[in-house]
Write a protein that binds this DNA or RNA. Structure first.
Length: 363
DNA sequence: CGTCCACAGGAATGACGGGCGG
DNA sequence: CCGCCCGTCATTCCTGTGGACG
């Protein structure tokens, strides 16, 4: 990025790496350094960091970029093209080199296609004074396949791959943080080693390793132990996972919950597997029970796919010859987990013991 | 070896709540 | 207040398809 300090635009760059390998942290760190250096040298540089997954749409990404340039844009109401024009205009007026960081860019491209990226890579051609360079950050290594070759070639002038941390590196990271957070001797070597090993097995996710250590520390503190043990780490692992699932489960839209509940009920009836059609039948009954109008099968099929991707369901396409092609579906999480969450929900408590019509009379 | 089931999943379209500038 | 556009969720209509069965 150094050329920007001399007033010429830097290369576009592409950064790959799995979650928790430090892509975002490093990028932000470098940009901070760069901007303070630029200030000292009086270089006209500005940057904007956008998380595309959080922003979610082209419109919101563009409006973040405009914000960074102090260009006034309403957060809805304008055509995307209009926002883009204002962005270009602002860029040209300010005669700046503008560094655009698009984090989790794969999420945006998968959902929306690469039009925005294409426009952004071409923006320099139409600017007279300003210049942009783009830094794309992606979790998905195979993400390139989704890109238009023109975008790809201009975007990957520089490529950086952040490989996953191995267990030794994770231990190193953990110890450094532990020095600040834990009292001397409050941490067993083996506990730290286990945190590192668990996170390394996942995919070298440092954030996860730190989470585990933090929760293990809290657990140890609560039980009044004088040091964090391996046992605490194992409890922490369960705890972290458990909390994550409960959180997703509780925040599911109501129809997704009904679908999940249908799968739960079918499981209760010792059916060996369930298929889309069965689930849809029971789902309709549950809608009836709770006074909601059911969605179409097409939509429910989509909901099942979403739940599958979240890991709450396991769905796999099978062909049963004469009996058609469908999905075999079962719960992807513990039944007790579903039961617990729904028992705490007024609307669903009753449904857990509902007996679907097709089971009536069957023991 | 063709048929046909029971869906998968893409595309187009619409309803809806929200916000905009004029 | 109007006409317009936004994003989200859903519906409608559609074509595609693996493999047991006849």
């Amino acid at each position: 990025m150094a050329p920007v300090l001399r007033g010429s635009p830097g290369s576009n760059a592409f950064i790959y790496g799995k979650t928790g390998t430090g892509k975002t942290a490093v990028t932000k760190y470098v940009l901070n350094k760069l901007s303070s250096k630029a200030q000292k040298l009086g270089a006209s540089v500005d940057f904007c960091y956008v998380n595309c997954r959080l922003a979610g749409t082209e419109y919101r990404v563009l409006s973040s970029l405009c914000d960074a340039l102090d260009v006034n844009v309403p957060f809805t109401g304008l055509a995307v093209g209009e926002v883009f024009d204002r962005f270009k205009e602002g860029l040209d007026k300010q005669r700046k080199i503008f560094i655009v960081v698009l984090d989790e860019i794969d999420a945006l491209i998968k959902a929306r296609g690469d039009t925005l990226l294409y426009e952004l890579t071409r923006v320099n051609e139409t600017l007279r004074h300003g210049r942009t360079s783009i830094i794309g950050i992606s979790n998905d290594l195979r993400f390139k396949e989704f890109l238009d070759p023109r975008v790809l070639s201009s975007l990957s002038e520089e490529e950086i791959v952040f490989r996953p941390y191995d267990a030794a590196e994770l231990q190193d990271i953990l110890w450094r943080r532990a020095q600040v957070a834990f009292a001397e001797g409050a941490l067993l070597d083996s506990a730290v080693a286990l945190c590192a090993a668990l996170a390394a097995a996942e995919h070298g996710d440092a954030r996860r390793a730190l989470d585990l250590l933090r929760v293990a520390g809290e657990l140890a503190e609560r039980e009044g132990a004088d040091c964090v043990s391996e046992d605490n780490v194992r409890q922490a692992e369960k705890r972290v996972e458990h909390d994550r699932i409960v959180d997703v489960l509780e925040n599911l839209p109501v129809h997704s919950k009904l679908v999940l509940c249908s799968v739960y009920l079918l499981g209760k009836a010792k059916v060996s597997y369930t298929i889309t059609g069965d689930i849809y039948g029971i789902y309709c009954e549950l809608c009836d029970q709770s006074g909601l109008s059911p969605l179409t099968q097409r939509r429910v099929s989509g909901l099942i796919s979403e739940l599958d991707m979240m890991g709450l369901l396991n769905a796999r396409i099978v062909s049963m010859g004469r009996h058609g092609r469908t999905k075999k579906i079962r719960l992807g999480i513990g039944r007790s987990l579903v039961r617990n969450v729904f028992t705490n929900n007024d609307r669903f408590r009753g449904l857990l013991s509902y007996v679907p019509n097709c089971f009536a009379g069957v023991s």
